[in-house]
């Protein structure tokens, strides 16, 4: 079942196009990552589908239904930093959420227990640590058992322990069948948490699909040969090889999945090339991602 359908969604800020004719479809039960560097339009996109930012053009539909206000109660969301009334306690802040979502206060204890803030519920929000604030935000988003949870940079500004806590929380929440839309600039986060991903750059969709397909770890090799022209031609004409960089005779390119140096060497020899340097790159996922961002 389709949870969200985005159709040519566009937002202009003066001359700047923050989001450019975005198309997206999210199915029920998926953990959908929106991945992109800062300023790529992630938050603007989430703002629009949450009715906070008015789209310049285009449209979106939740739950294949046109009435946004009815459906909003089924969506829990956190955008950027946790926002609450600092002088109110965690409990009182969540009471406001309950009133907004038209549900009883009974659900408050449940969500406070999930995020382990029950003991501190009577304390004012301003006395909470950043990690606790973020957890309260997640508690707020979980009120009323939403069908969709939208999280924007949920681990931003947290220490390693806080990051681990939040990620485990997200994975546990997803086990209950809630659809999650997660925006992040951290490749690692999306890879660890998400089932699907869309990569955004300057408001445009670069690529979208299953994380296994898109963020699979490609094998990237550095190769030096004497006959550079021949290698360049081979790389350009062979779909198994994707050139990432060529610098002073050193070719950096990706090769088939799960390949090793031996496979590549054999392939080169079969094509009449002898490598004077052949090395498999470590941490290739990051560079692969950067390559998508920079060259797409």
């Amino acid at each position: 079942m389709e949870i969200l359908k985005i159709n040519k969604l566009t937002k202009h800020y003066g001359k700047l196009t923050a989001v450019d004719k975005l198309e997206l479809s999210i199915d029920k039960g998926s953990i959908y990552g929106i991945l992109g560097p800062n300023g790529s339009g992630k938050t603007t996109t989430l703002g629009m589908i949450l009715n906070v930012i008015r789209p310049s053009s285009g449209s979106f539909t939740w739950f294949a239904d046109s009435d946004l206000n009815v459906n909003r109660q089924k969506i829990g969301a956190i955008i950027e930093t946790p926002i609450f009334y600092p002088y109110l306690s965690g409990q009182k802040n969540l009471e406001i959420f309950c009133k907004i979502k038209k549900i009883g206060y009974a659900d408050i204890d449940r969500v406070l227990n999930i995020v382990e803030l029950y003991e501190r519920r009577k304390d004012a929000f301003k006395t909470y640590s950043l990690g606790m604030k973020q957890r309260l935000a997640i508690a707020g988003a979980l009120l009323g058992e939403p069908e969709v949870l939208i999280l924007d940079e949920p681990t931003n500004g947290l220490d390693p322990q806080g990051i681990a806590e939040i990620r485990n929380l997200i994975i546990n929440i997803a086990k209950n069948g809630i659809t999650i839309i997660l925006a992040s600039h951290l490749l690692d986060e999306v890879q660890k948490v998400c089932s699907h991903v869309m990569i955004l750059k300057k408001g445009k969709k670069l690529i979208a699909g299953r994380v296994d397909d898109i963020l699979r770890e490609p094998d990237i090799f550095e190769v030096k040969v004497e006959e550079t022209e021949k290698l360049r031609e081979l790389i350009l004409n062979n779909s198994d090889l994707n050139l990432i960089q060529e610098h002073q005779g050193l070719f950096v390119f990706s090769y088939k999945e799960h390949s090793n140096g031996k496979d590549l060497n054999q392939f080169l020899i079969e094509n009449g090339l002898v490598a004077s340097h052949l090395q498999k790159q470590e941490k290739s996922l990051e560079s692969y991602f950067l390559n998508i961002i920079e060259h797409a």
């Binding site: 949450l50 009715n51 926002i83 406001i96 907004i100």
Partner: peptide, 19 residues
């Protein structure tokens, strides 16, 4: 103005209040 300085005006819409 509290709603603007705390940014809670935005949060309320995110939580589900219509304009």
């Amino acid at each position: 103005t509290n709603e603007y300085s705390y940014k809670t005006i935005k949060q309320q819409v995110i939580s589900g209040l219509s304009r």
